Amino acid sequence: MDPRIREHASLLVHEALELEEGDDVIVRVPDVAEDLLVAIYEALGDVGANPVSVSGSARAHRAYMRSHDGEFELPDHEMALVEAADAHIHVRADENVTETSDVAPERNAAYQQARRPILDERLTDNWTLTQYPAPANAQLAEMSTEGYENFVWDAVNKDWDAQEEFQAQMVEILDGAEEVRIVSGDTTDVRMRVADNPTINDTCKHNVPGGEVFTAPQPDSVEGEVLFDKPVYQQGREVLDAHLHFENGEVVEHSASKNEDVLTEILDTDDGARRLGELGIGMNRDIDQFTYNMLFDEKMGDTVHMAVGRAYEDTVGEGNEQNESAVHVDMIVDMSEDSRIEVDGEVVQRNGTFRFEDGFEE
């Protein structure tokens, strides 16, 4: 076994989740990532935790979704399992990244809505999400298998203390801020209030790899338009040039040059899906190319991402409204050229370079 797999597993168990003896852990790992499952079980055995493995077969999920009548109910037995767990490890890895591309978008939306209480429950526990470098994901990233393995583990197995210190400079800027404005070319100009909402320094806990700072906009405050010029990969489909127009916090117009129906179904999932639940700023300089994997792409150091749907509870200040939804879908704006981030009227990033980095231009 590649020693980097065991390093990855140790990071999940000991640092991201800080698991202890007696913890009950649900581990969701696709078959193609069996080596990482083995390494995770070794690490869980070291601490005396109690794992149960749940397979993530995309083929089985596709078969179920296509044969179902579309009237989904909450699976009580799975809810009971999640309620009984102390922690969750979710690994992404694909044998075929387009396996579910022939499942109707409205059926996916109905499925997610029915299972929303499971998501709500899981997010109240100790959880982490990561990626195993499977060949299909390498192919989607247009990389060799070995090249993608190096890319993933360079981004995952790194000095997270140094990364946290670097990102803390942006957290300091956003803490106490009233308003953030994102401008990119003549296609994106959007404002949102973030007053009294905490800013999270994400290094290596819920997302592995980390490499962003993020907060939640006040749901009714978002005004303007955004062109997400990086592709969004959802439900086995590529959505290109997703464009959202916000008024009083709500998406009132939207379009896409490819698979607009997927974008429409996401926004129609529920009322909260038409509002922003997250504003994130990528800061992981080891992630330097787009790979069609949001877990990595949203951390790129010259990008901003916004998520329609659910706001994470720890990004919402006391007394502020938390946006609720069954979905949380991130979309990326390239900030490398003709772009800026303003915080309370002051430019804090220009053309992908932060105010506290060499080369920043006033």
Results as ranks from 00 to 15, higher is better:
A43N: 15
S101G: 07
G277P: 12
V97P: 03
R115C: 15
D220S: 14
V103I: 11
R66T: 15
Q131M: 15
G277Y: 01
A326E: 00
V304D: 00
E20M: 12
E15R: 15
V347L: 12
N197I: 08
F72W: 07
S325T: 06
L244V: 08
V239F: 04
A60T: 13
G272I: 01
P231Y: 10
M306C: 06
V13H: 06
A138M: 06
I332W: 02
G211L: 12
P135H: 10
E178A: 10
T315Y: 00
T145L: 09
Q349M: 15
R6F: 08
R355Q: 14
F246C: 02
Y41F: 14
S57A: 04
E34L: 10
V213I: 15
G301Y: 11
G210L: 13
I341R: 13
E260P: 04
R115P: 05
E15P: 00
Q113V: 15
T353P: 00
T199D: 00
A9K: 05
P51Y: 08
E362D: 15
G210I: 14
G48H: 02
R28P: 02
E362I: 01
D270I: 08
H245D: 08
V13A: 05
V348A: 05
G277N: 09
Y132K: 14
E83F: 04
E99R: 11
T203Y: 11
A216H: 00
H206Y: 12
S57G: 08
V226G: 06
A242G: 07
V251Q: 05
E361K: 14
A138W: 13
D125R: 15
G272S: 05
A104Q: 14
V27E: 07
V262W: 01
G249A: 05
N157R: 09
A85G: 04
A33Q: 04
N320A: 00
M65W: 03
A242T: 02
V82Y: 09
D268K: 09
F72H: 01
Q167D: 08
E178N: 12
F296C: 06
S67T: 13
A63R: 14
I332D: 02
V32W: 02
I5Y: 03
H254C: 03
T130C: 13
R275P: 08
S339F: 12
E71D: 14
I266Y: 06
T187M: 12
E223I: 07
Y148G: 05
P198I: 04
V262N: 01
A141M: 05
G176W: 00
V156N: 07
C204K: 13
I173F: 07
R237L: 14
E42N: 06
H245P: 00
E342I: 11
A49H: 04
A168E: 15
A168N: 14
N96S: 13
P217L: 02
G147A: 09
A16M: 08
D314R: 12
A155L: 11
T264F: 00
H8N: 07
D314P: 01
E321N: 03
V38Q: 03
V47E: 01
A87H: 09
P51I: 14
V213L: 04
E21P: 01
S257V: 06
R237F: 06
L17N: 13
D220P: 08
S101W: 10
G224L: 04
A16G: 08
V251D: 09
D358C: 10
E253T: 12
P117D: 03
G317E: 03
S101E: 14
Q234S: 11
H61R: 13
T188H: 02
A114F: 13
F214S: 08
A141S: 11
